[in-house]
Computed example of a mutant assay.
Amino acid sequence: MVENLLEQLKVCNDNLAVLEKLLNTDETEFFELYHEIQLAPVGFWGAEKALALIDGKWKHAILMRLFRNKSMRYSQIKRELEEYGITDYMLSASLKELTRDKLVIKTIYPEVPVRVEYSVTHKAFTLWKIFLELSYWYNSYQKEELELNLTKV
């Protein structure tokens, strides 16, 4: 088991080194470097795995509300998403997955009645920053397209 973990750690470190090189290049050098990289199976680099952490209809919406409110009870999250059609089953399942993936912390307070609150982790914060960059990228290109369309009118 230790040998397997050490091998996985070595692969991860190698991947990080290659990714760091790719991230710190201009477009010409990027294509030259990328051409030399061996093809990897789907999910090998981790982007698909990162996206899977918030796949589905509700995880993004839940995280967005937790970022805005810092900490929320189940009923508060449910109330905010009810008008969009979330069911108890989907909210519960999504919160369990977000907790399992260490994006959300579930805090149980020993009170009567028991109080449970959900909040985001630092891991969620760092992932969210990446998604904000992705949103910025999308909106930048959408803006360019809209401005181009306006010149055609």
Results as ranks from 00 to 15, higher is better:
residue 3 E to D: 13
residue 3 E to C: 06
residue 4 N to P: 03
residue 5 L to Y: 12
residue 5 L to H: 08
residue 7 E to Y: 10
residue 7 E to P: 03
residue 8 Q to P: 03
residue 9 L to Q: 13
residue 9 L to P: 01
residue 9 L to S: 10
residue 11 V to W: 05
residue 11 V to Y: 06
residue 12 C to Q: 15
residue 13 N to M: 14
residue 14 D to V: 06
residue 15 N to G: 05
residue 18 V to G: 02
residue 21 K to G: 06
residue 23 L to S: 11
residue 24 N to W: 07
residue 25 T to A: 04
residue 25 T to E: 07
residue 26 D to C: 05
residue 31 F to K: 11
residue 33 L to V: 05
residue 34 Y to Q: 09
residue 35 H to C: 12
residue 36 E to Q: 14
residue 37 I to T: 06
residue 38 Q to M: 14
residue 40 A to R: 13
residue 41 P to A: 05
residue 42 V to M: 10
residue 46 G to P: 02
residue 46 G to T: 04
residue 48 E to W: 06
residue 48 E to P: 01
residue 50 A to S: 15
residue 51 L to G: 07
residue 53 L to D: 04
residue 54 I to M: 07
residue 55 D to V: 07
residue 59 K to W: 01
residue 62 I to N: 00
residue 66 L to T: 01
residue 66 L to R: 00
residue 67 F to H: 06
residue 68 R to Q: 13
residue 70 K to H: 09
residue 70 K to A: 11
residue 71 S to I: 04
residue 71 S to H: 05
residue 71 S to F: 04
residue 76 Q to N: 06
residue 77 I to D: 00
residue 78 K to H: 03
residue 78 K to W: 00
residue 80 E to D: 10
residue 80 E to K: 07
residue 81 L to S: 01
residue 83 E to C: 09
residue 83 E to V: 10
residue 84 Y to T: 12
residue 87 T to F: 03
residue 89 Y to Q: 10
residue 94 S to Q: 02
residue 94 S to H: 01
residue 94 S to W: 00
residue 95 L to Q: 00
residue 96 K to S: 09
residue 98 L to N: 01
residue 98 L to S: 01
residue 102 K to N: 14
residue 102 K to L: 13
residue 103 L to K: 01
residue 104 V to T: 03
residue 105 I to A: 04
residue 105 I to T: 08
residue 107 T to A: 07
residue 110 P to K: 09
residue 110 P to G: 05
residue 112 V to F: 12
residue 117 E to I: 05
residue 118 Y to N: 00
residue 120 V to T: 08
residue 120 V to R: 01
residue 121 T to F: 03
residue 123 K to Q: 11
residue 123 K to D: 11
residue 125 F to I: 15
residue 126 T to R: 07
residue 128 W to V: 03
residue 132 L to D: 13
residue 132 L to V: 15
residue 134 L to C: 11
residue 137 W to P: 02
residue 140 S to K: 14
residue 142 Q to N: 11
residue 142 Q to T: 10
residue 142 Q to H: 10
residue 145 E to R: 15
residue 145 E to I: 14
residue 146 L to W: 10
residue 146 L to T: 12
residue 147 E to H: 08
residue 151 T to A: 08
residue 152 K to R: 14
residue 153 V to G: 13
residue 153 V to R: 13
